[in-house]
Amino acid sequence: MYAFDYHKPHSLAEAAALLEAHPEARLLAGGMTLIPTLKQRLASPTDLVDLGGLADLVGIVVDAGEITIGAMTTHAAVAHSKEIKARLPALAALAEGIGDPQVRHRGTIGGSISNADPAADYPAALVGLGATVITDRREIAADDFFTGMFETALAPGEIVRQVRFPIPLAAGYAKFPNPASRYAVVGAFVARTAAGVRVAVTGAGPSVFRLPEMEAALASSFAPQAIAGIDVPEDDLNRDPHATAAYRAHLVGVMTARAVTTALES
């Protein structure tokens, strides 16, 4: 990797000041994407600002209607949280399916969503549940947060503090993993809430997206059969050696139906 200066601030303000002082700095959360990228010399930040010293950013708070997860909380902590398992098992299951044990014990929810990998799992949960991203400056609705491939609504220097998930009536996540990387080829998150049904899909397109037609069909009948006839257009979907756009379009229907089944069983 290229040389860089390393900083480990102990407050959000200190971290923000470092980012301000070093315009080419990058935030380091769990480092599960950034470190390999650095090792392959695909990125050359002048400075790394490690958020690992900010204890405030770690933790899970569950109250009556919401679960709030600190940005530096690891996937393993979410996966193993008794309260999340009890109140929002689909989210715990999603976290348990990310990467491998090493990744789950280093990788964080804040790092994952800020990186906005099109094949990451968390974006499906945030959008599928209608979560809110809380930064050091403002609150951003998940629907507005993911703006494109590796792109978010975060302004330069803005730091994710927490993610707040409303607890749905029922939810399910189903993913078809890339056999090599185990990232999502297609991952579908389905949530039934008092306000209606949300369906969010990751892995299939350049960024997480919702399926309004399926949401409407599931709102009138929350069962896998309800979406049986709904075709997903393949025009804007990703294609790679592991999955064509047509295959991804097909898998969107299959994974959404399976997520509904999981939600019904939960």
Binding site: P179, A180, S181, D240, P241, H242
Partner: peptide, 20 residues
């Protein structure tokens, strides 16, 4: 599956992200 790109002979499956 080790894949070389037709036409360019560039190695497509060059890491464990793509090679299963």
């Amino acid at each position: 599956n080790c894949l070389y790109e037709p036409g360019t002979a560039q190695l497509l499956s060059g890491s464990f992200m793509d090679y299963t």
